[in-house]
Design a binder for these strands. Structure first.
Lengths: 340, 340
DNA sequence: TTTCAACACGCAAACGTTTTCGGCAGGCAC
DNA sequence: GTGCCTGCCGAAAACGTTTGCGTGTTGAAA
């Protein structure tokens, strides 16, 4: 086993100083052609590669981006990571991934862990618990220490930083608008509890769309789900008692669950019930019927977030001007809505 | 903005030496109660945290695990990462994720990038291209440099290292065995091209199960798919010409695609055709009908891989004895197979 | 022969830690 | 008064880099 070779070892072997070796490898004109070639040959032979940690310490840059997300076993977040990783890689950055598991404490611990020099900046999406507690001091703190943060998807207005989101409210509006324009009468909503920021926005979009068409949003037509495991009865109740002809669900899990329950009750989708979901993930594509949905391009979102972070990292002067970028969405029509 | 405070700054403020500060914070008995308290109070006030990079350089340990996988937008790999992250976190490790995108070159570049000090060890699954080329010198190299590697799922016998896999052949055998025991006559196989290691093993399991029951594996009953985008015609041909009553598919994408095509041809699942897939992912759970499948616990797989790696990292003496651990699988019966 | 520039290289600091060792002062025993 | 021990602290090395600056040697010009 041959261990990694260092400048010091090369210097010793060739009987020159460490600085000579370093300069030779970096093609400094200070060094004679002769020794330079000798050193380079030797370095190549022993496959010398500078130690990243030492470079990080010296340069005070790690070329590493920290990602903190609630879950990775979630297609949307996986696509975002994929987008981040791609852009990061193109720019010579690595990504280090931490999962908060929707827990405030884990989010805080992970941030503190990474903030102590391991990374140059954060890309994150808030955990549910953090959104519930509205406690963002851990984020404020790293920003105060001069470490840039880019938030995506689940963001908050209470923290000043770059953000990249979709227009959740508008997207939801468009889905409901689609229903209204196509003459659906009783449009139900399956959404999250209000403290989930994106859920709330999508709920607002639903309500506004109805209002703008002179309909009232009836609370009986709205189901707010806290826990996906125990949501069946609530959705069944909505389907049974209100007999909606269309359902807008704020994520694909809610959409597919609604469809499954409807099927069990003898309702055919899309004949008896039309469904539009949110997030164009695996489920929407492959379930039967495939689900019409608001596409939310995670790859693009992650890519933009990474770009914004890297731009800020490589700016000379600091800039207090924070941007919020919108990633466009659109309705993907599939089998769960009728072709008209 | 207050930047991160260092030992040096504390030392200067309190007019003591750096070593005194360091020792005070680590509760060394060398330091008087008095100064110790003073230093600790000051450090707490300014929220001192040791710099990870400096510690890594000094200790020659980064407490970071490098993960290299073909894709993250793939439920199985996401669950594996989740499992790795959990165990890593419990042991004070972080994970840094790189994606090879199924490309040999990206796999090599990523490994070289991380091997230069950024991480303590690798957990990886081979890219398709690497499996095709059978070129593993990049892996041999990092192992030679004393950096432990744990491979999972897509592994190779040509590299000596710890591995964690499922018994792909046995699992496939059991799926086919299930069909045979339940009196299915014409059992088809939808699999990958042979160079994908796990695909080949599952194919072998299929063949062996047939042989053991005195049936011959007919090539006409086997479809080998290179590219999921252009597989429809091949599968349709199998369904049409051979009229199988059961299909074993080596992953869930193949399974759901087969079901969709069968539906299009007017075949009902499971009445006219039974299907068993592989990998208990989102698709299998939520498609209609839900798909019977061989469950492959990614969380457990990742967890075991992380344990093996960390054990090896924290061993004193080096140990050339490499283990291959098997994660058990089982058949999850759902709607795509008849209840008997 | 002296002077000076160019050339080639080494020294040392710096990044932020931890830890070994040595030193200084005070107190105690003789 | 001398010697020694102990308690407390600081200097310095080490991890692996990069880089500004100092220095010695060489050759040519004066």
């Amino acid at each position: 086993m041959k261990r990694k070779v260092t400048l010091k070892q090369i210097a010793k072997e060739l009987d020159v100083s460490i600085s000579t070796v370093s300069k030779s490898l970096r093609n400094s004109p200070e060094i004679s052609e002769d020794t330079r070639q000798k050193v380079q040959a030797f370095a190549k032979l022993y496959n010398y590669r500078p130690n990243n940690i030492a470079l990080s310490l010296k340069n005070k840059k790690t070329k590493t981006i920290g990602i903190i997300i609630p879950e990775i076993v979630h297609h949307f977040f996986a696509t975002v990571i994929s987008g981040i990783e791609q852009v990061a890689n193109e720019n010579g950055y690595n990504v280090i991934v931490c999962l908060s598991d929707e827990s405030f404490d884990k989010e805080v611990i992970n941030m503190e862990m990474l903030a102590n020099g391991s990374i140059d900046g954060f890309i994150m999406s808030l955990s549910k618990e953090t959104q519930l507690k509205k406690d963002f001091h851990h984020i404020e703190e790293v920003i105060n220490q001069g470490m840039p943060v880019v938030m995506f998807d689940r963001v908050t207005n209470e923290v000043l930083c770059d953000k990249v989101i979709i227009d959740d409210q508008l997207a939801a509006y468009e889905a409901v608008d689609f229903f209204i324009k196509n003459n659906f009468k009783k449009i139900g909503l399956v959404t999250t509890v209000d403290y989930v920021s994106v859920g709330k926005l999508r709920t607002d979009g639903y309500i506004n769309a109805l209002k703008d068409h002179d309909r009232t949003a009836d609370d009986a037509m709205i189901v707010k789900i806290e826990d996906i495991e125990n949501c069946a009865s609530k959705i069944e109740k909505l389907l049974q008692e209100q007999k909606p002809d269309a359902i807008f669900a704020v994520n694909e899990l809610f959409a597919v669950t609604t469809i499954k329950l409807a099927n069990k009750m003898g309702l055919k989708v899309p004949e008896d019930l039309s469904v539009i979901g949110f997030t164009d993930g695996i489920i929407s594509q492959f379930s039967t019927p495939s689900i019409s949905t608001i596409s939310q391009n995670g790859i693009k979102m992650g890519g933009r977030a990474a770009q914004m972070l890297i731009e800020r990292l490589e700016m000379e002067e600091e800039n207090e001007l924070y941007r919020t970028e919108l990633i466009e969405t659109h309705l993907v029509e599939r089998e769960s809505t009728p072709t008209l």
